[in-house]
Write a protein that binds this DNA or RNA. Structure first.
Lengths: 363, 363
DNA sequence: CGTTAGCACTCTCTACATTAGAGTGCTAGC
DNA sequence: GCTAGCACTCTAATGTAGAGAGTGCTAACG
């Protein structure tokens, strides 16, 4: 049925591609035709497999490191596998139980859960794992403080209704006493508590609201609003990571420059800031292979990511990063299960008084 | 004059030890007697140097990887060098200028400075660098919030007078409404704002203070006090790090297990939590060689650390981590200079309204 | 007694040649 | 369309020899 659909890859060729990928992923060395017929009973000879491999190579799905070597999947090959061939099955029951057990063992907080999730992921998939703590997608201001730091600097600290915090320095050209600042903060807290970034923005535009307030009020308000907005977009989210050693030990990262790139990624992860917001807004597990989404030079790396959270209200991202030679099926299963699990835990823990406007629900 | 002082290491032998260390540090390969006399004019022959080297080996300061190889410094050798031989001179003027330039280029905040400091350190010393943001050594409560998260959980968020923040979850056996919690927080904020952890502790012990307050008040107060105390001890301090690739590329970290150890150190740095508080309370640059302070297995690593900050009030830690084969002299100079520079910057920036009780100073 | 030239000895490293073997592509035949 | 068979290519492993690096020791020298 599917034979014609993508030009002229026969069913058996697909099967061979699958085998090559599986074998290569687990043994990290080129796969030979003889090896395929002996390990899997295809009812054809190695010569036939060779012919098929020649075809797969022509289609750009596998490559040959050198003349007398077996075949290795190409990036396109992995992509094809992930999209058409692989069928990730759920994690085995006992593994699921073991994982759940670790979570239930100790009563913990969201941040700890996320850290634990990264740790477990990195171990089950044997690669690096990463995760961000859950954040509300619509943060409401709970309270903020203005602190006089020096003549020209004021620190603004805000607390969201969900407990998230953010700090930012404000530069002003006039000196303000702590008393003046506290008074201003008091006044504004009364008016703004419970508002979102948009609502604050709107409030500022009501001329009446700004009368008889200190002259720095506008800049304070703008800063407040943008800080809330940043929180919502997860721009300031801290990213937990774990298991770097797992992938840096892999043969493909022996070359110093490859290693350098991966480490850069984790030390000042500019890349994440572009990827994470896009993941947050999608359902399901996303697979990024090679340099598909990241800059050139992140070849040799793949990422499997998923969103977790409570519907619209609270969300985070978690996933694994490994070499392109990665067990995609297992990774996808693990990431999917873990995101589901984390969502469930959050559900139980935050049957959330702040999830909506006034709608408080209880069990 | 110093000849006798430590048993029978002659002046020339010390000189030879210095040369061996310098050479080995920069070229990463065992140093031969011939190499020493040809590169440095010692006015003696290689045979003499060999005799001295035999003696140095007997003293445990150098070792020989195999029979026909040159010598390599031992951990004791490095330690001896750091304590008796090396004289770190200030960084060259132009380098100092270049570094200062990077700081002055952009007006920044303390956190950014610290990050930049780590980044510069890692580049000037060519190893990994780490730094913690400055924290007050006596944090006063500015404000706190109680947030109803679910039936049995309350989140406590506190803001210090210097802008530091901390969050913690509280478990309670009774359900509290957000209104009740806010009222309690309001009341307590009024009474406690400006107090240190000790003062809060004392306040709690005044029986009169706890009358007619909600029953969860005591646990809230205890939590508040311990959170403040943790802040002061830098236990929750985030550690910036940079330049991991610099050291993981070094030949001594080729073995996977070595690499593993270093990465563990950075991923969940339990080690730091014990080292950092002890550094905070000392002046000057500390050098930790091999597994002197860290667990077994951190062989092959050395750390050079120093405190920076404003007298008693505000302090942080910064330093570099590299292989034991590290340019100690340069590291010490760099760390010293950087800590001085950071202290100066803080001095100028935080001519601090909150450094003492009420003593506000201005320029 | 400290220093040195000389030398034997040990060990490593490199180059080179050789071989074994892995794996393919192709051809001819079923 | 499949397969047996084979020539061809390239890699990886092995062995050998020689060069070179570096030492320790000894005997001689001031």
């Amino acid at each position: 049925m599917e034979q014609l659909h993508d030009n002229s890859i026969s069913e058996r060729q697909r099967q061979i591609l699958s085998i090559i990928i599986e074998e290569y992923v687990s043994h990290a060395r080129p796969v030979a035709s003889e090896q395929i017929v002996s390990s899997y009973h295809l009812n054809v000879s190695s010569a036939t497999v060779r012919n098929d491999m020649a075809e797969l190579e022509r289609a750009g799905l596998i490559v040959q490191p050198h003349t007398s070597a077996g075949r290795v999947p190409s990036e396109r090959g992995y992509r094809y596998f992930v999209e058409n061939l692989m069928r990730p099955k759920a994690l085995p029951q006992d593994e699921q139980r073991k994982i759940r057990h670790q979570f239930h063992q100790v009563e913990m907080e969201a941040d700890e859960w996320v850290r634990l999730a990264a740790s477990i992921l990195s171990r089950t998939v044997h690669s690096a794992a990463l995760a961000t703590a859950p954040r509300s997608t619509a943060v409401r201001l709970k309270h903020f403080e203005l602190l006089a730091i020096s003549d020209s600097r004021i620190m603004l600290v805000l607390v969201g209704h969900d407990g998230t915090v953010a700090q930012q320095m404000l530069h002003v050209d006039q000196e303000w006493s702590q008393e003046e600042l506290s008074a201003l903060a008091n006044h504004l807290n009364g008016a703004l508590s419970g508002k979102t970034s948009h609502e604050i923005e709107a409030w500022v535009n009501e001329p009446a609201n700004l009368q008889s307030i200190l002259t720095i009020a506008p800049s304070v308000l703008v800063t407040l609003s943008t800080m809330l907005a940043k929180l919502e977009r997860h721009e300031t989210a801290e990213i937990y990571h774990e298991g770097l050693a797992n992938i840096l030990n892999q043969p493909e990262f022996r070359q110093p420059e490859r290693m350098q790139q991966v480490l850069d990624l984790f030390e000042h992860g500019h890349v994440w800031t572009s990827i994470i917001p896009s993941i947050i807004n999608q359902d399901g597990v996303q697979v990024i292979i090679g340099d598909e989404a990241m800059g050139e030079g992140m070849r040799a790396c793949s990422i499997v990511l998923a969103r977790y959270g409570l519907g619209e209200h609270l969300a985070g991202v978690l996933g694994v990063l490994g070499p392109t030679r990665m067990p995609y099926s297992r990774s996808v299963s693990s990431v999917r299960y873990m995101s589901q699990l984390l969502s469930d835990l959050l559900q139980k823990s935050y049957n959330s008084p702040f999830s909506g406007q006034g709608e408080t629900q209880s069990e």
